[in-house]
């Protein structure tokens, strides 16, 4: 049995309610010591797709809060969070995954950074966003793959 297969067997066994699709449900992502060791989508991460998710205002919209020199053609980069240049040097992939999945597990409950793959959200969520995560599991893996490429200041 190859690795990917083995992992989905484990996932299905652990989360019997989850569909056969090789994704970890938002409530089932295990954050351990500020890290999510296992990818949450079997499809793996694609840094090129992740760069798009990062910049897209309807998806990650990460530039709303973060400066990122790798995307310098995009105007209006926010300063609510730290600049992400060299972030791939500062954090392991598993930590970056935890930050994107639910930043509160890493920075504490007061952080402004939304949980992009979490249903632990605010009250009165608008109908169109109810019980939905901001990003899909695949988007998260793509963004994490992209973040790991941001090396050197």
């Amino acid at each position: 049995m190859n690795r990917i297969c083995k992992r989905s067997v484990v996932l299905v066994a652990l989360f019997a309610a989850a569909p056969a699709a090789a994704e970890t449900a938002p409530g089932a992502v295990a954050v351990d010591d500020m890290a999510v060791a296992q990818p949450i989508s079997e499809a793996g991460g694609d840094p090129v797709a992740g760069r798009k998710v990062f910049a897209d205002r309807g998806l990650g919209n990460c530039l709303a809060c973060h400066v990122n020199a790798d995307l310098k053609s995009e105007l209006f980069q926010g300063t609510v969070g730290p600049a992400l240049d060299g972030v791939g040097d500062r954090w392991e992939a598993a930590q970056l995954r935890a930050i994107v999945v639910n930043a509160k597990t890493v920075f504490g409950p007061e952080t402004m950074m939304p949980g992009f793959y979490s249903l632990d959200v605010g009250v009165d969520v608008a109908e169109e966003f109810k019980d939905k995560t901001i990003l899909s599991a695949k988007d998260v893996e793509d963004v994490v793959a992209y973040l790991t490429t941001l090396k050197g200041e």
Partner: peptide
């Protein structure tokens, strides 16, 4: 101070904790 919505922000998230900073093109 009540956090609302999928993005989980309170008024204070933008206008207290982050006033003076930029949220995209908006100077909070």
């Amino acid at each position: 101070y009540l956090r609302t919505g999928q993005l989980n922000f309170a008024c204070a998230s933008c206008h207290e904790a982050n006033s003076g900073r930029y949220l995209r093109a908006d100077h909070l």
